[in-house]
Write a protein that binds this DNA or RNA. Structure first.
Length: 766
DNA sequence: AACGCCTCCTTTTTT
DNA sequence: AGGAGGCGTT
């Protein structure tokens, strides 16, 4: 039914579509056929997805049981749930809304028999998986330097993501290939024996379940009439195959995605799936959402201009009814410290009087870049939050405690057995464990059984080992009837983990103990069997693996946001700083070498389109990368952003850098240039354009002429290497003051960063 | 088992 | 530079 044909009498439906723009409306109210929605950044994609679901239920009488909605992250799934709930008066619980992995997991729990799994199978997270691969490689005597656990794990996952099983590829390929297949086979066998399923395996098993078990397939074909997919451009081969299989002949697919925001090719995502979808579902209609509700016209112009340099796009041009907005600020820093300082300065300008910290976001290409920014933010006393890093359920102490819980639930889990046996330490060392492993391998037993049956063969340590085995059985008995949280608490106590971490010193130790308490707390919400009647222990462990928690720091607090461009996808901020726009950093060296610039360009596009009102882009002329000072050329992406959207802001001699070296005139840019827009200390110029025209010559001198002209100070200049009798070697970061009171800031290689009186410090030029 | 030294590596991240 | 992990020493 089309919107035009809507019965005017139904106010609910009118309300549902009234607020939508024509393109959104077309997507939402389309007949129940296959649809591909090309949703540009900030074009209301989640809105379309949720309204589509509401529409299907209200107009096409689709039951919530017949809907399947898939996302990539838990966050997106939760958001979708929440918004559907707001929109329709139907218990969302009945609806299959979740991540690919979460839904696959649900299917496997329901059909564990048909999927040839054990009922209490457990999920391996990335870390568990790599540990297991490592043990497998050792057992196969494969040299660890040639076949690193990381590389082999990556390879195995890549195979799974292409839907390949070892037997289908055994006798082809070269020696290396055959070795890898051998590892894959052995790894898979270990998983089967121990009842373990890794992330990729969840998807592959769920796929095979549908492919191989006709009854199950038929059941779900009858059930799911509509399959809705979010972030379709991020699907990998296996996810796509699974979607097709689950749709069957009659199910209708509604895919929402954006080829311009495909930034996960490196982990197997296939943008081509968008084209594939059009081929596999001939007649599928394409809807473009191009009206943007997020950014100013200037920001969109920059984004459109940049992304136009990519080839093979489906094509899309974002537009807005919003005002033009401010120009994008471009800042040429002389190094990463200067860059960070500038960012902080601009933040202060913004915060002055208005604005929340959380309005501000700094986006960078690689995590290493956060350090200097952090340093400056601390110095400026601005609260900040860094995304990324270890999540709650990935922390060592948490994983240690969970290993005990897992071992109680499943004695065959060798990884948990080893972990529990060694933490806390109990006099069973590497040698004994190696012997135990050998014994287990020889007799085809789990470590648990090997220890039970062959402890005597281990000599002296058999005592400690025997105690451990008895302790596990005893703990199991004693905690069997306890509610989950109490069980967890008792385990943490009786395993000796609490004692163990109490002994550890430093501020980390305290945090560890707190995390263990928090773990008990987290267990509380899993004390009752869930909807499918699954045992609390299993659902808790599943939760731990599938939803490792938020990355770092307390959410919700008003703080400046620091994150990589990748983690910024899907977010938006009033004020965005995109830093480190240098060839070799962004685009990354690797991308340049491999000629994979298009994905990097999309990443840049994602960065630009995060900004609502203000966007500042910066690059440094020199930066320390992997401990070495390097001369950087501005990113080629800067050339690709339409000039008219940019205004260059540069440090103004004599203001930013204190009162040194104002003997400008020559070499100094825009001495009398009018100051525009900025709070203080900076001015605009066209130096960057001039430099652009010079081309990117890597052998160009380290600092541009303005540096040498402007920064000479007491015989020293910014960026210069100097020696100090007690602090050793360092680099001059900045100057302050004049004459007697002149001070210099130096970052020493071994003594940190210090401010020294220029007249006192016995500095020598290097 | 704990500690310290040495070598290696270094883009991006979710499940 | 800085972290991780391996390895040898106490």
């Amino acid at each position: 039914m089309q919107f035009d044909a809507l019965p005017e009498t139904d106010p609910r439906l009118v309300a549902l579509v009234e607020a939508l723009n024509p393109a959104q409306r077309e997507a939402v109210t389309a007949p129940p056929e296959h649809r591909l929605v090309l949703a540009g950044a900030g074009s209301g994609k989640t809105r379309v997805l949720t309204h589509r679901i509401a529409w299907l239920m209200a107009v096409e009488n689709v039951s919530p049981h017949s809907l399947l909605a898939v996302t990539f992250t838990n966050k997106a799934a939760n958001e979708m749930r929440g918004r559907i709930e707001q929109l329709v008066n139907v218990p969302v619980r009945a609806m299959w809304v979740g991540t690919f992995h979460g839904l696959a997991h649900k299917l496997l729990r329901l059909h564990w028999r048909e999927a040839r799994l054990v009922q209490n199978f457990q999920i391996l997270d990335a870390d568990d998986q790599q540990r297991l691969v490592k043990r497998v490689l050792k057992s196969l005597d494969m040299p660890e330097d040639r076949y690193t656990p990381k590389m082999v794990t990556g390879w195995i996952n890549a195979q799974k993501e292409e839907g390949r099983r070892p037997h289908a590829m055994s006798d082809q390929g070269d020696y290396t290939q055959r070795q890898l297949v051998r590892a894959y086979t052995a790894y898979q066998q270990a998983c089967e024996q121990q009842g373990l399923v890794d992330f990729a395996e969840l998807l592959l098993r769920a796929y095979e379940l549908f492919r191989d078990v006709a009854d199950v397939r038929a059941h779900y074909h009858r059930k799911f009439r509509h399959v809705l997919v979010d972030e379709f451009q991020d699907t990998n081969t296996l996810q796509y195959l699974w979607l097709r299989l689950i749709c069957g002949a009659d199910g209708k697919i509604f895919a929402v995605g954006d080829d311009d925001q495909s930034i996960y090719g490196w982990r197997g995502a296939k943008v081509e799936n968008i084209q594939k979808l059009s081929r596999d579902y001939p007649g599928i209609e394409l809807v473009r959402l191009e009206q943007n509700y997020r950014s100013t016209a200037t920001i969109l112009k920059a984004a459109n201009g940049l992304i136009a340099h990519n080839s093979g796009r489906l094509g899309k041009n974002l537009w807005t009814e919003d005002r033009e907005g401010e120009a994008i600020q471009l800042y040429a820093a002389y190094n990463e410290y200067d860059e960070a300082e500038f960012v902080v300065q601009r933040m202060r300008d913004y915060l002055d009087g208005r604005g929340r910290y959380a309005d501000l976001a700094v986006l960078y290409r690689s995590n290493a870049q956060s350090r200097v920014l952090e340093e400056m933010l601390i110095r400026a006393r601005l609260p900040y939050r860094i995304y990324g890093g270890l999540r709650f359920f990935e922390r060592m102490e948490v994983k240690d405690a969970l290993a005990w819980l897992r071992l109680l639930a499943n004695r065959e889990d060798d990884g948990s057995f080893e972990r529990a046996l060694t933490t806390p330490p109990r006099g069973v060392g590497a040698t004994s464990i190696e012997k135990l492993r050998a014994f287990a391998r020889e007799h085809g037993l789990s470590l648990w059984k090997a220890a039970r049956n062959g402890a005597a063969a281990l000599g002296r340590t058999s005592g400690a080992l025997g105690l451990f085995l008895d302790q596990i059985d005893l703990l199991d008995q004693q905690t069997r009837e306890l509610p989950l949280a109490q069980k967890m608490e008792k385990l943490i106590e009786r395993s000796g983990l609490k004692e163990h971490y109490k002994k550890e010193k430093g501020e980390q130790a305290e945090a560890r103990l707190e995390n263990l308490d928090e773990l008990v707390n987290a267990a509380k919400s899993f004390e009752r069997p869930d909807e499918e009647g699954i045992d609390p222990v299993l659902s808790f462990l599943t939760h731990a693996a599938l939803e490792a928690g938020e990355g770092q720091a307390t959410a919700g607090e008003d703080a400046v946001q620091l994150m990589t461009l990748h983690s910024a996808k899907g977010l938006e901020f009033p004020v965005v700083f995109m830093v480190g726009l240098e060839n070799g950093l962004f685009p990354s060296m690797r991308a340049v070498d491999e000629g994979n610039l298009e994905e990097e360009r999309r990443l840049c596009y994602v960065g630009i389109t995060r900004a609502r009102q203000q966007l500042t882009i910066s690059y440094a002329e020199s930066r320390r990368i992997h401990g070495v000072e390097q001369i950087c050329a501005p990113s080629q992406f800067l050339k690709e952003i339409p000039t008219e959207t940019l205004v260059e802001t540069r440090p103004r001699a004599g203001v930013l850098r204190g009162s040194f070296g104002v003997q400008s005139g020559r070499g100094s840019y825009g001495g009398g240039a009018p100051r525009t827009g900025m709070g203080s200390g900076y001015e605009h110029g066209n130096a960057w354009r001039e430099r652009q025209q010079e081309g990117y010559n890597l052998s160009r001198p380290a600092l541009s002429s303005r540096m040498t002209a402007e920064v000479a100070f007491g015989g020293f200049k910014l960026g210069q290497r100097v020696g100090h009798p007690s602090f050793g070697e360092g680099t001059i970061l900045s100057f302050d003051g004049e004459g007697e009171r002149a001070r210099v800031e130096i970052r020493f290689a071994n003594a940190g960063t210090k401010w020294l009186m220029l007249s006192m410090a016995k500095l020598s030029a290097l």
